[in-house]
C-alpha cells in the first residue's frame, strides 16, 4: 500500500477532503467566481437584458456615466461612437448611501454599547431584557416592519399623534418630506441595535472585574474607567462590529424599497445605492451599467474595510483581557 505510485498516494490523501468540499466548490465556481468575472466583463459593455445581441464593448463608458458629472459633463461619446448620457441620479444615490452609513453605523454602535453596559451590571432579568431589546432586530429587516415604518412616520401616523399630544403643531409628513425621509431610515437602523448589543455584552463579560476594582482603589472614577479600561479592552469587538455593520449598511435595500414605494422617494431622498442599481438593472434592464455599479460598490466597501483595518493598529489593542 505505502509504496504505491505517488499520484495514487496524493489522491488517496486528498480525495476525502475534496469530496466533502465538492458542493461548496461547485457553488464557489458557478455562483461566485464565474459570475464575478462575468460581471466585471459586462461592466465594460452596454449589455441590455432585453437586447443581448446589441451588446458592444464601451470601455470605461459605464464608469464615466457614473462619475462624469464630477468633470462637469452631461453627455459624452462612447467607444461605439454613440452619445451616452451621464446618470443624473448616481451621485445622489452615492450621497444618500454615504449619509446613511456615516450616521446610522456610529449611532447604532454607540446606542448598542450604552445599553450593553447598562445590562452588564449584575442585574436580575437581564436575559429577558436582552430578548425584548432584540425584538426590533429580529423583525427589523422585514417588509412587515418597513410597512409599519411608513405608517408610523406619515403625516397622520403614530409619531405625529404622540407629538401633537405633547403640544406640537404643524407637523410634517416625515416620510414624504425630502428633508426628513432619510432620517426615518437612519432611525430604523439604530432601532435594530440588538445583535451589536449582544456581541458587546459578550465582550464586556470577558473584561476581568479585578481591573475595575484595582482602578477604583487607585482613585479612577467611572469616566476614567470607561475610557482607560472598557474602551481599550473592548476595541477588538468594536472593530468587528464596525466592519460588519458598515458592510451591511452599504447594502440596505428592503426598507428603502418599501418606504419609497419601489422608487427613490420624494426628490430621490431615499434613493439608496442598491435601490438605484436594482432600478437600472431590472426596471431599465441596463445590466451592463448595473454590473459596473456593483463593482464600484465592491471597491468602496473594500477600500473602506481596508482603511478601517489599517487604522485599527492605532486604536485597537490586543493581548490583554484574556
Amino acid at each position: 500500500m505505502s509504496n504505491s505510485h505517488p499520484i495514487v498516494r496524493f489522491l488517496r490523501r486528498n480525495a476525502a477532503g475534496y469530496l466533502f468540499l465538492t458542493p461548496w466548490l461547485v457553488g464557489f465556481f458557478v455562483l461566485t467566481l464565474y459570475p464575478m468575472i462575468y460581471s466585471l466583463w459586462l461592466s465594460f459593455t452596454n449589455y441590455n437584458f432585453t437586447k443581448p445581441d446589441a451588446m458592444q464593448w464601451i470601455g470605461f463608458g459605464n464608469y464615466l456615466k457614473m462619475f462624469g458629472s464630477v468633470f462637469g459633463l452631461s453627455q459624452f461619446t462612447a467607444a461605439t461612437g454613440d452619445a451616452m448620457h451621464i446618470d443624473r441620479h448616481y451621485m445622489k444615490s452615492l450621497s444618500v448611501t454615504f449619509t446613511y452609513v456615516l450616521a446610522a453605523v456610529p449611532l447604532k454602535l454607540t446606542f448598542a454599547l450604552g445599553v450593553a453596559m447598562l445590562m452588564s451590571q449584575k442585574l436580575r432579568w437581564v436575559p429577558f431584557y436582552r430578548a425584548v431589546y432584540y425584538i426590533p432586530t429580529l423583525l427589523g429587516g422585514s417588509v412587515a416592519i418597513a410597512v409599519l415604518w411608513r405608517k408610523l412616520f406619515e403625516k397622520d401616523g403614530l409619531i405625529n399623534a404622540f407629538l401633537s399630544i405633547l403640544g406640537f403643531t404643524d407637523l410634517p409628513g416625515w416620510i414624504t418630506n425630502p428633508r426628513y425621509a432619510l432620517w426615518t431610515l437612519v432611525l430604523l437602523a439604530v432601532w435594530q441595535f440588538g445583535s451589536s448589543m449582544i456581541i458587546f455584552l459578550a465582550g464586556l463579560k470577558q473584561i476581568p472585574q479585578e481591573y475595575y476594582e484595582a482602578a477604583g482603589v487607585d482613585g479612577a472614577n467611572k469616566v476614567h474607567q470607561f475610557f482607560f479600561i472598557t474602551l481599550p479592552l473592548l476595541s477588538p469587538v468594536i472593530l468587528f462590529n464596525l466592519v460588519m455593520q458598515m458592510i451591511s449598511a452599504f447594502q440596505v435595500f428592503t426598507q428603502a424599497y418599501i418606504i419609497g414605494g419601489g422608487g427613490g422617494g420624494v426628490l430621490n431622498s431615499t434613493l439608496f445605492y442598491t435601490l438605484h442599481l436594482y432600478i437600472q438593472g431590472w426596471t431599465y434592464y441596463e445590466m451592463g451599467y448595473a454590473s459596473a455599479m456593483a463593482w464600484v460598490l465592491l471597491l468602496i466597501i473594500g477600500v473602506l474595510t481596508a482603511l478601517i483595518f489599517r487604522s485599527s493598529r492605532f486604536w485597537v489593542s490586543y493581548g490583554t483581557g484574556e
Binding site: F28, V30, L31, T32, Y34, P35, M36, Y38, S39, L40, L42, F49, I247, F250, Q251, T274, L277, G281, M287, A290, S291, M293, A294, W295, L297, L298, I301, T305
Partner: peptide, 16 residues
C-alpha cells in the same frame, strides 16, 4: 466570500 457584497454576482446569476 463572507464579506463579498452579493451585488457583484447578481446580474450574471440572473442571466444564468
Amino acid at each position: 466570500t463572507l464579506m463579498l457584497p452579493a451585488h457583484v454576482t447578481l446580474v450574471p446569476q440572473y442571466i444564468l
